[in-house]
Amino acid sequence: MSIQHFRVALIPFFAAFCLPVFAHPETLVKVKDAEDQLGARVGYIELDLNSGKILESFRPEERFPMMSTFKVLLCGAVLSRVDAGQEQLGRRIHYSQNDLVEYSPVTEKHLTDGMTVRELCSAAITMSDNTAANLLLTTIGGPKELTAFLHNMGDHVTRLDRWEPELNEAIPNDERDTTMPAAMATTLRKLLTGELLTLASRQQLIDWMEADKVAGPLLRSALPAGWFIADKSGAGERGSRGIIAALGPDGKPSRIVVIYTTGSQATMDERNRQIAEIGASLIKHW
């Protein structure tokens, strides 16, 4: 067993022997301040990774656009098919120029040779490549099948209805392509620590998230040296922004954090800054 596999296998073990965790309302004060600064709703939840206990939450059962955070769930569904012998990570998928959609920095470079399922998941999570996500959605049967996968996990809230990039439209009061912070946090925890996926697939999923290259201005910008984070960000229309993450000190994750916002007129930089400040408060009061 590799060191990384050992780390993920012992996530519940280490967490069980940690000192009790206590909620700190100071972080919620910052979440509410972010709402004021952005002029928009902000949803927040913080779960203990081992027990699933909610440590703090704000608007945990209000719907927010998922945006690209759905790509972690998508690759979880792909990995479940791999575990069941219905898919192979090494299978190569070929596609054409007509398949390319807006923001496809990886797939646009491989029109000639195609990409493997493993490479597509890596591109979808680490670079948020939209064509990679659409190609992977095709392998599982489309958005409705991802929703069905989530329902089978016990998540009857999260739903995907459309493809990239239309799913980022974020129309107010439109339930399409949305989740709730509580539902997303619980589902992410199941994917990373539950028995739904094999140990190898859980490790692969967290490795992809740990290698995320496009979430630097968010929670990662607030992390002290030595902290662990595996995350996936999302951005959408109407001032929408979000991030889902597993993080913790001492090089291992111990909490799940989900943050979503929508309806702001603020710039992307300002949305990023507010999420980073929430992260800084979380870490300060850990």
Rank of each mutant, 00 (worst) to 15 (best):
A148E: 07
P60S: 07
T147I: 15
S80C: 03
D161V: 00
V157R: 07
L89R: 02
T27Y: 14
I275T: 11
L218D: 12
E119G: 15
I45M: 08
E102H: 07
G154A: 02
I244A: 09
S264P: 06
R273K: 06
L79V: 04
L111Y: 02
G194S: 10
H94Y: 15
T147E: 15
P224A: 07
E237M: 07
A182P: 10
Q204Y: 15
P217S: 11
I244F: 15
L205A: 07
V257M: 01
K32F: 04
D212N: 01
A133M: 10
T178G: 05
Y44T: 11
A84Q: 13
D83G: 01
E164H: 12
T138Y: 01
T179N: 15
E87N: 14
P217E: 10
L196F: 14
E108L: 04
E26T: 01
I243K: 03
L160G: 09
K32W: 02
E46R: 04
S68G: 09
L38E: 12
G39D: 06
V31T: 04
D99R: 14
V117D: 05
T187Q: 00
T126R: 03
I229Y: 04
L74T: 09
T187H: 03
D177I: 05
L73M: 13
T112H: 03
P253S: 11
D212E: 14
I229F: 00
G251A: 04
A211T: 02
R220S: 04
Q86Y: 08
F64D: 11
S264A: 08
M67I: 08
G242P: 07
D161G: 03
K53F: 13
S221N: 03
Y260L: 04
L111A: 06
S254R: 05
E35Y: 06
E164V: 12
E108D: 13
G248A: 04
H24N: 08
A77R: 10
W163A: 06
D207G: 05
F58N: 13
A280L: 01
N272L: 07
A245D: 11
T198L: 09
P65W: 09
R92I: 00
V72L: 10
D231F: 01
N98C: 03
I93D: 15
G234S: 08
L79Y: 06
V257C: 05
G76L: 03
V258H: 08
Q274M: 10
R162K: 07
P181I: 09
R273I: 15
D113V: 02
E62N: 08
R202H: 14
M209R: 04
D231T: 08
N173M: 06
P224D: 04
R176D: 14
T158R: 09
R238Y: 09
H156T: 03
Q204K: 09
E108P: 09
E61P: 10
T147R: 15
L218I: 11
R271I: 12
E62H: 13
K53D: 08
R41P: 08
T198K: 10
P253L: 14
H151D: 10
E87P: 12
G248Q: 01
G142T: 01
S201T: 11
I275E: 12
K144L: 08
R255H: 03
I171P: 09
A34F: 10
S57A: 10
Y260R: 00
P181R: 10
A235P: 08
E270Q: 15
N152M: 13
G248L: 04
R241M: 13
G76W: 07
A235E: 14
Q203E: 04
P60I: 02
G236S: 13
I256W: 10
V214M: 01
K190M: 15
S128D: 06
I229V: 03
K32Y: 07
G248H: 04
P65C: 09
M268C: 15
K53V: 01
P60T: 07
H285N: 12
A266G: 14
L120S: 09
I171D: 05
D48T: 01
G251Q: 06
D212R: 14
E166H: 14
T262I: 10
D231H: 11
A246W: 09
A132E: 15
L205Y: 11
Q37I: 10
T112N: 09
D250K: 00
G248V: 03
E169N: 04
A133D: 03
Q86H: 07
E237S: 12
L28W: 09
R59C: 12
P217I: 10
R271S: 10
T131R: 14
H94D: 13
S254Y: 02
Q204V: 12
